[in-house]
Simulated assay, not measured.
Amino acid sequence: MENKLYERKEYTLNFNGKGSDFFGIVMVNWLLTILTLGLYYPWAKAKKLQYLYSSTSLNEDYFAFHGTGKEMFKGFIKAIGVFILLGIVIYIITDLFSLLFLGPLLFYVFLIALLPIAIHGSYRYRTSRSSWRGIRFGYRGDRKEFTFLFFKWIFFTIITLGIYGPWMAMNMRNYLLGNVRFGDVEFEYDGDGSEYFMLNLKGYFLTLFTLGIYLFWWQKDLFEYYVNNLSLKKGNEKIYFSSTATGGSFFGIIATNILILIFTLGLGYAWVATRTMKFIFANIEAEGDIDLNALVQTEENYKDATGEDLSDFLNLDTIM
Rank of each mutant, 00 (worst) to 15 (best):
I135T: 11
I117Y: 12
H120F: 04
G141D: 01
F137K: 03
F137V: 09
L149V: 08
R143T: 14
S122D: 10
K144D: 10
F146N: 06
I135F: 09
I117V: 15
G138I: 00
R143I: 10
I119T: 07
S122W: 04
L149K: 13
L149Q: 10
R133H: 08
T127E: 08
R140K: 15
R140V: 03
G121I: 15
R126G: 07
I117R: 06
K144H: 07
W132D: 08
R124I: 14
L149H: 00
R129T: 05
F148E: 11
T127Y: 10
Y123E: 13
H120I: 00
I119H: 13
F148N: 08
D142L: 06
R136M: 06
F148W: 10
A118V: 01
F137I: 07
R129G: 01
G141M: 01
R124A: 06
W132C: 12
S122A: 14
S130R: 05
G134E: 04
R124S: 12
G138Y: 02
K144F: 11
L149E: 00
F148H: 06
E145N: 09
S128M: 01
G138K: 01
K144Q: 09
R133K: 14
F146V: 04
S130M: 02
R143G: 05
S131R: 07
S122R: 08
R136H: 10
H120K: 03
Y123D: 01
A118K: 04
F137P: 04
L149C: 03
T147A: 10
R124V: 14
D142P: 05
G138Q: 00
E145F: 12
G121M: 06
E145A: 10
R140L: 05
F146I: 06
G134H: 04
F148K: 08
R129M: 05
I117D: 10
I135W: 04
R129P: 00
R140G: 14
H120V: 03
Y139P: 04
R140D: 14
E145M: 09
I135Y: 12
R133A: 12
R140H: 15
E145I: 08
F146M: 09
G121Q: 05
R136T: 08
R136G: 07
S128N: 02
S122K: 11
R126D: 11
Y139E: 00
T127S: 12
S130G: 01
F137H: 00
R143Y: 06
A118I: 09
K144N: 10
R133Q: 15
H120M: 11
